[in-house]
Structure formats: C-alpha cells, structure tokens
Simulated scan of single mutants.
Amino acid sequence: MAPLDLLRRLTANGIELRARGAELSFKAPAGALDAVTVESIRQLKPDLLRLLDGSTCRWCGLPMARRGTPAVSLADGTSLHGECRTDFDIDRIERAAKRGLSSTLTADPAEVVVRGELDAIEREFSR
C-alpha cells in the first residue's frame, strides 16, 4: 500500500497519526487498529514521517520543494501544495458528508421526504 493511501485510510477510519520527531504517535477509536494496519504503519514509517513532517505533499506525494507554489500547512503537521488544496478540501468534505448520512435515515424514504419539505419551509420563512 502506498503511504498516501494508508494515511487516507487511517484518516477515514478516525485514526489520527502524528510525527513526534523520529517517532509516530496516534489516537484511534477502540478496535480501529488491527494487526495488518499496525504492520503497514511499521513498514511505511519513513514515508509516513515525511508526509507528517510537512516535507511531502499530503495530497500528491511530491516533495514540497519541487513546486514553486505556496505551501499550505495543516493542523496535523502535514503540508499541501497550493494547487493541491482544492482537491484535498473536496475530498475531505465528501468524506464528512458520507459520515453524516445515517443509513437509517437514507433507508427510510419518508424521513428523506420530510427533511426535504422542512428545508423548503425553512427557506420560505427565511425570505
């Protein structure tokens, strides 16, 4: 697995990975880290450290120094090339939207219809 793919998978599963010097630390929901994932982290540790210390773009995987555009630093210590920011944000928003959709809500058409009607009523009153 490529380091970027692993980092994206960890993030999607609610696992927060950080660089602490030459070591990695993480916060994860109970049961989120299985033996296969831990082994992948061990094998890709040098590459993950480069992603997490900001010297490699979190989106495209290229070294930050290779492009002439301004870098964007993220709260977790990773960096993005300026031109990679939009794609990164779109991906992040799409993942958040998918997590926000309850399977019970989308499984019941009546719930979806009522929500749509409430949105229309709310728009009508906000004029």
Rank of each mutant, 00 (worst) to 15 (best):
A96R: 05
A97N: 09
S103R: 09
C60N: 04
P46Q: 05
A71V: 07
R67H: 03
P109C: 03
G116P: 06
D76L: 07
D119P: 05
G82L: 05
G68D: 04
P63E: 14
T78C: 15
R58W: 01
D53H: 01
A110E: 08
E16I: 03
M1V: 13
I90V: 14
D5C: 10
T37M: 10
A65H: 02
V38F: 00
R85H: 10
T86Q: 12
T37E: 07
C84A: 11
D34W: 02
L80A: 06
R67P: 03
E23D: 10
R95D: 15
L101G: 01
G14L: 03
S103P: 05
V112R: 06
L105W: 01
V36Q: 13
A12W: 01
A12S: 15
N13T: 01
A96H: 05
T37C: 10
I93Y: 04
L33S: 02
T78F: 05
E16K: 08
E117C: 15
L51H: 04
G54W: 00
R67F: 09
G68V: 07
A2E: 15
D34P: 01
A107G: 06
F125W: 12
A35K: 12
T37L: 14
A107L: 02
P109I: 00
R9K: 13
I121G: 12
V38R: 14
D119R: 13
D89S: 03
V72L: 08
G54T: 02
E124T: 14
P46I: 09
I121M: 14
I93P: 03
A35D: 14
H81V: 08
D89A: 12
L49E: 04
D108P: 00
V36S: 15
A97F: 04
A35N: 10
W59P: 00
T78E: 02
L118Q: 14
D5H: 13
V36P: 09
A75C: 05
L101E: 08
S126P: 05
E39N: 07
L62M: 10
F26A: 15
C57F: 00
A75I: 09
F125M: 15
G68F: 00
